[in-house]
Design a protein around this nucleic acid. Sequence first.
DNA 1: GACTGGATACCGACTGGTTGGTACGTTTTT
DNA 2: AAAAACGTACCAACCAGTCGGTATCCAGTC
Lengths: 192, 192
Amino acid sequence: MKLVRSSGYSATSVDQLCAEAGVTKGAFFHHFPTKEALGVAAAEYWSASTSGYFAAAPYHHHADPVDRVLGYIDFRMALIGGPVEGFSCVAGTMVQEAFRSSAAIRVACEASIMGNAKALEADLADAIAQRGVRGTTPESLARHVQTVIQGSFVLAKTQNGDASADLAREQLGHLRRYFSMLFGAAREENLQ
Amino acid sequence: MKLVRSSGYSATSVDQLCAEAGVTKGAFFHHFPTKEALGVAAAEYWSASTSGYFAAAPYHHHADPVDRVLGYIDFRMALIGGPVEGFSCVAGTMVQEAFRSSAAIRVACEASIMGNAKALEADLADAIAQRGVRGTTPESLARHVQTVIQGSFVLAKTQNGDASADLAREQLGHLRRYFSMLFGAAREENLQ
DNA sequence: GACTGGATACCGACTGGTTGGTACGTTTTT
DNA sequence: AAAAACGTACCAACCAGTCGGTATCCAGTC
């Protein structure tokens, strides 16, 4: 995770990986047939650990589905801080490099990102139904959350120091505002 | 451009570059001292060619600044189609890989992305002033446009075939809706 | 208009180090 | 005793970058 997030997938060599993990090359290739397989496993591990992390987060307790959705965004914003390597996404980083060269990695990263999106769909569906939002779907909005998150990481990488985290947080603020308006405005309209 | 967009920066070798360009390695290293210098030059070329392209686009003619901003988004949406390599961003792709290993490339990509954002700031400032939007700045909104664009490219890379372009276009649709609500709702509020 | 000298453009073989991956032996677990 | 885990030495291919040489251009000179 550490090496891929700071150097990218292809610039990270198997030798570096082994040195960082305190493992010999023989052991590495005993467990993974190729470097590509490690990439797939990394995406799957990332997927499993993040989905577990978000499932245990506190924002699920809100009664109002809109509060749950905004709570998720607030939670994501609170996670952003320090150097980019500390909050960026392994799947997003890998798929950018490997989408054409490795179908297996592409699919694993797709599963990670879309799986993360899927965890929001139920709350978004409730929010849409309750506030009578039209013209979009919970699936599309869930993807938009991921879009803004991934995009904020790209822009964060153009900065150095604290500016990275500040920029990423600022951008999630716009996502929050969009959802706030989308569900808030629809509510007012609904009450007329 | 072609090789970086489809294979990424570090997975693209100087030999491949030379073969693709029909140039020998001697010629390459005559013009660029290092591969990194080519990366910087690529970002600068990308920056110059895209800014020229957008400066000549038709959306500037609208009288209403909000129409100019939405026109920009529509223009970007119209550019999306075919394989991801055809519409993705060279600067966004490179900075993801090289932000830690090469400060020069990071800065060149920052200049490209932020320069593209800057081109929208005047219209956004006019729109904010005219509609009385509060709580954000033209700079922040301009960055948000780039965030959604870059994020949509990342998500597009998780898909294959036509689904890539469809997903990217769908996501720019949310950006359009956000701006539409932000400036539209503020207008109604303003007229009360 | 022919000649010259120096600068620039370009070529392609070469180098030292690195790459992902293998072969084969040894240790540890079951 | 068998199988899984792990270590070491090694390999061919490839990597960015170098180097000595050649071709081309152009300003100045006669």
